[in-house]
């Protein structure tokens, strides 16, 4: 009985493709015998714990990394999740970045960077929204482009005398607001 069961299993191997599934076009160097990069049902790719990638990683699917990546990650229109086991030494560009593991390098996101509890980022973050959980580690600078909160956006072009600019004298005067006794 047992033998028959095993043979049945062997007869129908899932044959998970070892080749990187579209997300890692360049220089994928697997550390272990097989890169456990698997494609899930939807557009979400996961890089397993034992995988080490050195080089540039780009793609157009959401990606979860549990392994090690060194170099550059470019997922401009997608979500990058660094899992609890993930270790990244790279410049990261993505739509949104969720960090549960370790990142060393600058992180740029067009929507949001979310460093969860026990997540760690050592580098500068540029994103309109940044969330850093209690217990997360962060060392670096945060650049939040003003998310439409207030004040007109800075104009980088030459300045012809514009009447529309709100008064912003050289010496900033504290606005006469409530001072509270």
């Amino acid at each position: 009985m047992w033998k028959r069961d095993e043979s049945v299993k062997r007869a129908t191997p899932p044959a998970q493709t070892p080749a990187a599934t579209s997300a890692a076009p360049v220089a994928a160097v697997p550390a272990a015998s097989e890169p456990r990069t698997q494609q899930l049902g939807r557009d979400n790719v996961s890089i397993g714990k034992s995988v080490i990638i050195k080089g540039e990683l780009s793609g157009s699917e959401d990606l979860t990394i549990e392994g090690h990546v060194e170099g550059r990650i470019d997922l401009k229109d997608n979500v990058l999740t660094i899992g609890p086991n993930g270790k990244i030494k790279a410049e990261v560009f993505a739509k949104a970045v969720v960090v549960l593991g370790e990142v060393t390098g600058n992180v740029t996101a067009s929507e949001k960077v979310d460093i969860r509890d026990n997540g760690s980022v050592d580098g500068d973050i540029a994103s309109p929204r940044v969330a850093i959980a209690e217990g997360a580690h962060f060392r670096g600078a945060v650049d939040m482009q003003r998310a439409g909160a207030k004040a007109p956006a800075p104009v980088p072009v030459p300045v012809p005398a514009k009447p529309s600019a709100p008064a912003a004298p050289g010496l900033p005067q504290p606005q006469a607001q409530k001072v509270g006794a």
Partner: peptide, 17 residues
Amino acid sequence: GSNVTFFGEQLGCRIRV
């Protein structure tokens, strides 16, 4: 985290911790 958000949104500034 909430301070980073506060100053980032209030001032649109770059914060170095």
